[in-house]
C-alpha cells in the first residue's frame, strides 16, 4: 500500500507543488490538504510547505497556526503523526508550539537563496532515518526570516536530547543560533527544517538529490522502522 502524505496549502503557500512532487518522487501518494478544511483525509503524514502563508503579515506563521487544518494537525502530531515543516512550515510549527523557539529576521537582513551544506545531526527522527548521523548533504536554503533563536536553556535541552536534526556547515546563511537548521520534538515525529529538501530531488532542477532522503525516511518510518 502506498503511503499517503498530505501537503497543506495555505493562502500564500508557494512550495506546496514542489513538496507534492518530492513526495511522489519518493514513492508516496501526495494528498493536497486545504487550510480551511480541518479533515486530514486519512493521510499517514503531513508536510507544511514553504511560502508566505497569509503574506507572512503580522509575523511568519502566526496566522496560519490558527487555520482550521492546523487544529487537527496539532492534535494528530501530539498523537504521533509525522509532520515536516519546511521553511514557512517550520515557522508555523514554532508558532503552534509543536516545536520550541522561533525564527527571526536573517541577521544580515537580506533574503538569501543559496545552495547550503548541512550536517545531519540526528538520524533518529521520522524524517531523517534514511541518513547516517554526521552525513553531509547539500540542500537549497532560501528565506528572509530563518534565523533560529531560543533561550539558552532550550538550546541546551535540544542539544542534550539530540533534537538538533541538522546544522549549517561551511557558513551560516542566516545567523541561526548554534548553526541550527532543523530541530525535532521529543517524540521525533515532528521536524522543522529551514532549508528546502523538496528542491533537491531531481538532477535537472536541484543542486543534489540529497533532499529525497527526508521523504523516503518517512516512508521507512511508516512501514515500521524505528523512528
Amino acid at each position: 500500500m502506498t503511503a499517503r502524505v498530505g501537503v497543506v496549502t495555505f493562502p500564500g503557500s508557494l512550495d506546496d507543488g514542489d513538496a507534492a512532487r518530492a513526495v511522489r518522487i519518493a514513492g508516496a501518494e501526495p494528498v493536497r490538504l486545504w487550510h480551511g478544511d480541518p479533515a486530514l483525509h486519512g493521510v499517514d503524514a503531513v508536510v507544511l510547505p514553504g511560502g508566505f502563508s497569509y503574506g507572512d503579515y503580522l509575523r511568519c506563521g502566526a496566522i496560519a497556526r490558527f487555520a482550521p487544518v492546523m487544529e487537527t494537525i496539532v492534535d494528530a502530531a501530539r498523537g504521533g503523526l509525522p509532520v515536516l515543516g519546511i521553511c514557512n512550515g517550520f515557522q508555523i510549527l514554532c508558532e503552534a508550539h509543536l516545536l520550541p523557539g522561533a525564527l527571526t529576521r536573517n541577521q544580515h537582513l537580506h533574503f538569501r537563496n543559496r545552495d547550503q551544506f548541512l550536517r545531519i545531526e540526528s538520524a533518529g527522527t521520522a524524517w531523517t532515518n534514511a541518513f547516517q548521523p554526521g552525513q553531509e548533504v547539500l540542500i537549497p536554503v532560501k528565506n528572509g526570516e530563518g534565523c533560529y533563536v531560543a533561550d539558552p536553556a532550550t538550546l541546551d535541552q535540544l542539544e542534550g536530547e539530540g533534537r538538533v536534526v541538522a546544522r549549517y556547515i561551511g557558513g551560516n546563511p542566516n545567523g541561526s543560533q548554534r548553526d541550527i537548521a532543523a530541530i525535532t520534538n521529543s517524540a521525533g515525529n515532528v521536524v522543522g527544517i529551514m532549508p528546502h529538501p523538496e528542491h533537491a530531488v531531481e538532477e535537472l532542477t536541484g543542486p543534489s538529490l540529497d533532499g529525497l532522503g527526508f521523504f523516503t525516511s518517512v516512508l521507512k518510518h511508516l512501514v515500521g522502522a524505528p523512528a
Binding site: 545552495d115 547550503q116 551544506f117 547539500l138 561551511g170 557558513g171 535537472l204 543542486p207
Partner: peptide, 19 residues
C-alpha cells in the same frame, strides 16, 4: 558581508554554486 564566513566548495555534479 565581506567578512562573512564562506563555505568550502564541494564539487557536486550539477550543483549551482551559491556559496
Amino acid at each position: 558581508e565581506v567578512a562573512e564566513v564562506p563555505a568550502p566548495a564541494t564539487g557536486v555534479a550539477g550543483a549551482v554554486e551559491a556559496v
